[in-house]
């Protein structure tokens, strides 16, 4: 734009001062040549005269940027990303390890609980059995004692009965002899009375 305007003004100036000096002409020609080049084909992009410098500066700037990017910028990003990845992986590993540990602890706890439960069960069963055994023993002792006592009592009763029976026989014999003596008026035969009483008692016993 500035160039174009410059060209324009110099051109008009040149036109006004045309007959003046040859120096101005030379200057005019130089400017015209320059503008002619820059406006060739209308589009500034098609002005081949500017290609060289653009390519030179593209090359320079691109190489500089490439060096900065590849030597400075990207390695830092890569390093950070790798570190982050490693940290995350390490954290995940640690979490995995801790999870496994927690599971082990849980398993151990459950095993201990089961064992305790089993032990309690066993203790209970044992206690029950012991108690039952003791009860049985006590019962047996009691039974035995009671049996003994019963036996003794029975024996005593039997003895008393036998004694009573024996004394009844004597008393009955005496009473019978007295009754026979009083009724018959004569002395009864002891032996016969005794035999008769015995027989009578035997029949009574038998009945």
């Amino acid at each position: 734009m500035a160039e174009a305007q410059d060209a324009h003004t110099t051109e008009t100036e040149a036109a006004v001062a045309a007959p003046q000096e040859a120096v101005a002409d030379a200057h005019d020609a130089a400017v015209e040549a320059h503008t002619e080049v820059s406006q060739e084909g209308g589009l500034p992009q098609l002005n081949i005269g500017t290609y060289e410098e653009q390519l030179v500066w593209l090359f320079l700037t691109f190489v500089v940027l490439y060096l900065i990017v590849s030597r400075m910028a990207l390695p830092r990003v890569t390093k950070v990303l790798e570190e982050r990845e490693e940290k995350i992986a390490a954290d995940l590993d640690a979490a995995e390890v801790q999870k496994r540990e927690a599971e082990e602890v849980k398993a151990a706890y459950e095993a201990a609980l089961a064992e305790a439960r089993a032990k309690a069960q066993a203790v209970m069963v044992e206690a029950k059995a012991e108690m039952a055994a003791e009860i049985a023993k006590v019962q047996a002792d009691l039974d035995a004692k009671l049996g003994e006592k019963t036996d003794a009592a029975e024996k005593r009763i039997a003895a008393a009965k036998a004694e009573a029976m024996a004394s009844i026989e004597g008393v009955a014999t005496d009473v019978t002899r007295e009754i026979v003596t009083k009724l018959a008026g004569e002395e009864a035969d002891d032996k016969a009375v005794a035999a008769a009483v015995k027989a009578a008692l035997e029949t009574a016993k038998g009945a």
Partner: peptide
């Protein structure tokens, strides 16, 4: 070789400077 510094070159340099600033500045703490 014509290596004239033009408005185009100036903007190329400016862009490189801006990108460098953006990348290096962003990663200064890493």
């Amino acid at each position: 070789i014509d290596a004239s510094f033009t408005n185009s070159s100036a903007w190329m340099v400016a862009v490189v400077v801006a990108i460098t600033f953006f990348l290096v500045g962003g990663m200064r703490k890493a």
